[in-house]
């Protein structure tokens, strides 16, 4: 009897979506989910803001809560200049949040579990914030790598440290999101695989015993919901902190 095996990583395989047209241009299932996420956001906001009531309804208050949450995050972390960067932070936050949440549904691909996607976003944030720093401060932005109040003879040691620490930002930003999402989905798949293995090898006893991995999976889904929101929040708030560094240089 061929025992079923756990193939936890095949869920991250990229396939092509949209039929033959998608195959021709390599339109992947990851891209498909991105389009769905963007469509959900656009439709949600279009419907939610259609009424523009003074006393908002359910959908409108959801949309306004999103807006005010990210707006507060921008102004609190960047300062008054943060208003200029609100569209960027909002886009990143909502895109990652919907990617994480949609990925939790069965058969849906979580595009934030691909390091290509997270690294692209992290590199964009990194290059953008560096560009903002140079745009606002000119070459004086290089003083960001020189810590204040340090004797001169220590600078040859400290400047490389600061520089490496600065360069490590996009790495930690992308790996954190990618690793959290990938690990969560692997765990879900492994525990789901336990259920099938138990039933296949122990018969009716296995089916009864698979209540345990089922319960674990229920708890894991709750944890993954938390992680999905938390990681979107962390990505957005770190974007704010990096922009704060670029704007204020300390």
């Amino acid at each position: 009897m061929a025992a079923p095996t756990i193939d936890a990583l095949s869920q991250f395989r990229l396939t092509t979506g949209l039929g033959p047209i998608g195959r021709a241009v390599n339109f992947t299932n990851s891209n498909e989910m991105m389009l769905i996420a963007v469509a959900i956001v656009v439709v949600l906001f279009a419907i939610g803001l259609r009424t523009r009531a003074l006393v908002p309804g359910r959908l409108q208050s959801l949309v306004e809560a999103f807006y005010e949450f990210v707006y507060g995050m921008c102004v609190d972390n960047i300062g008054e200049e943060g208003r200029k960067f609100f569209p960027l932070v909002f886009t990143i936050f909502v895109f990652i949040l919907l990617g994480n949440l949609l990925g939790l549904f069965p058969y849906f691909f979580a595009y934030t579990s691909g390091i290509v996607v997270t690294a692209t976003m992290a590199l964009f944030v990194f290059i953008f914030s560096t560009g903002v720093g140079f745009y606002i401060h000119g070459w004086r932005f290089l003083k960001f790598f020189v810590p204040d109040g340090v004797p001169g003879w220590m600078l040859p040691m400290l400047v490389p440290i600061e520089f490496i620490s600065y360069l490590s930002r996009p790495v930690s930003l992308s790996v954190r999101l990618f690793a959290n999402m990938t690990a969560g989905h692997v765990m879900l798949e492994v525990f789901a695989g336990f259920m099938i293995m138990l039933t296949a090898t122990l018969g009716i006893f296995g089916a009864v015993a698979s209540i345990i991995p089922l319960g674990l999976n229920v708890a894991l889904i709750a944890l993954e919901l938390l992680v999905a929101c938390l990681q979107a929040y962390v990505f957005a708030i770190l974007t704010c902190l990096y922009l704060h560094d670029a704007v204020h240089m300390h």
């Binding site: 490496i164 790996v175 954190r176």
Partner: peptide, 12 residues
């Protein structure tokens, strides 16, 4: 969740 990655990223 933030801190674990930070050290590794800088080392990499």
């Amino acid at each position: 969740m933030r801190l674990g990655v930070e050290i590794v990223a800088a080392l990499v």
